[in-house]
């Protein structure tokens, strides 16, 4: 029987045979997005290894190199492919390090929001009653504030509450917390909705009949079955989180300038835009746009691919 043949396949061939892989391999735009996203992530992660210069090593910086245009423009220096900034730092290397910070903040805040949102949504949906009502009203209230505003508020509060050095040291984590906390509601609502559906299915009843605890049923039965939409939201939110971090940094309340992210780079470069040194802001901008666009396209594809109604 065909059934028994399918069973003996390993996980790799099962994946290659899956509808997910099929829809991926038949969508050129998605493949391009995946390549771009992987290239950017790869460049960011491997920055210390592959970047041509170390922009944070003051010993190698030379102010004489400042304001070099990109290599292919007249007056460019082939040592600095994308030119240099006002302090003589190599733009390409700076962008790679900046992307590293941006992605780190993005990933961490998405994971934070996801863990918080999924937990609250799961509990609200599964326990129901007053717990559900309270959690969901909190979520409603949260939704009435724009995410960036919440992030600004959190950042401001922490700034006011903590001494300056301490704040600078944990600034990165404050940004992650601020973006994460402004984003959990979407996860919580989706997971709550799916949980309400799943908890009335008979496999959950079967687990109840044998007397499993609610915690165990939630984690081992319900959770794996509500994670599909969560992955879609997480992917789409990664783009948002990166943008949010860039916005905060652009406004000057994000990560400290000693660890410039893409947003910080754009802000710094913005000062030179009208004096003709366009590359200092344009290249980080392009990188940011590519990063967010490719991640969002991947998220869109994932949403469509996992949506049974569209298949």
């Amino acid at each position: 029987m065909a059934d028994s043949i399918a069973a003996r396949k390993g996980p790799v061939s099962r994946f290659l045979d899956s509808d997910l892989w099929f829809s991926f391999s038949h969508s050129p735009l998605t493949i391009v997005s995946a390549i771009v996203a992987l290239a950017l992530i790869g460049a960011a992660v491997l920055a210390p290894v592959i970047a041509p210069h170390d922009p944070f090593n003051l010993a190698t910086l030379n102010l004489m190199d400042a304001f070099n245009p990109p290599a292919w423009v007249e007056g460019g220096n082939p040592d600095f492919l994308l030119g240099t900034d006002d302090q003589g730092r190599d733009m390409l290397s700076t962008i790679m390090y900046g992307a590293r910070i941006s992605l780190f903040v993005g990933f961490c805040s998405v994971i934070f929001a996801m863990v918080l949102g999924v937990t609250l949504g799961l509990v609200a949906g599964f326990v129901g009653g007053t717990t559900d009502a309270v959690l969901m009203r909190i979520a409603d209230i949260k939704l009435t504030f724009p995410a960036i505003l919440v992030a600004l508020l959190v950042d401001g509060l922490v700034r006011a509450a903590l001494p300056r050095e301490l704040h600078d040291r944990i600034a990165l984590w404050v940004v992650i917390f601020a973006i994460g906390i402004s984003n959990w509601v979407q996860y919580a609502r989706t997971v709550r909705g799916s949980t309400l559906v799943e908890k009335n299915k008979e496999y959950v009843m079967a687990a109840r009949v044998i007397g499993l605890s609610s915690t165990r049923i939630m984690t081992s039965h319900v959770l794996p079955n509500v994670m599909g939409p969560v992955l879609v939201i997480a992917t789409l939110n990664l783009g948002f989180a990166i943008l949010a971090e860039a916005t905060l940094s652009f406004l000057g309340v994000g990560v400290p300038p000693t660890q410039p992210s893409l947003g910080t780079l754009i802000r710094i470069g913005n000062d030179f835009l009208f004096s003709g040194e366009w590359w200092i802001t344009v290249f980080p901008g392009i990188t940011l746009a590519l990063m967010v666009l490719s991640v969002n396209l991947l998220g869109d594809w994932l949403r469509d691919a996992l949506n049974p109604r569209l298949r």
Binding site: E202, Y203, A206, S213, N225
Partner: peptide, 26 residues
């Protein structure tokens, strides 16, 4: 308590209506 119920619960089980919903798909 759950512990007190367990010996009795072991002795009874349930078969459900919808074979597509009664087994955890994951």
């Amino acid at each position: 308590s759950r512990a007190a119920q367990a010996p009795v619960r072991r002795r009874m089980q349930m078969i459900f209506q919808d074979p597509y919903a009664s087994l955890n798909p994951r």
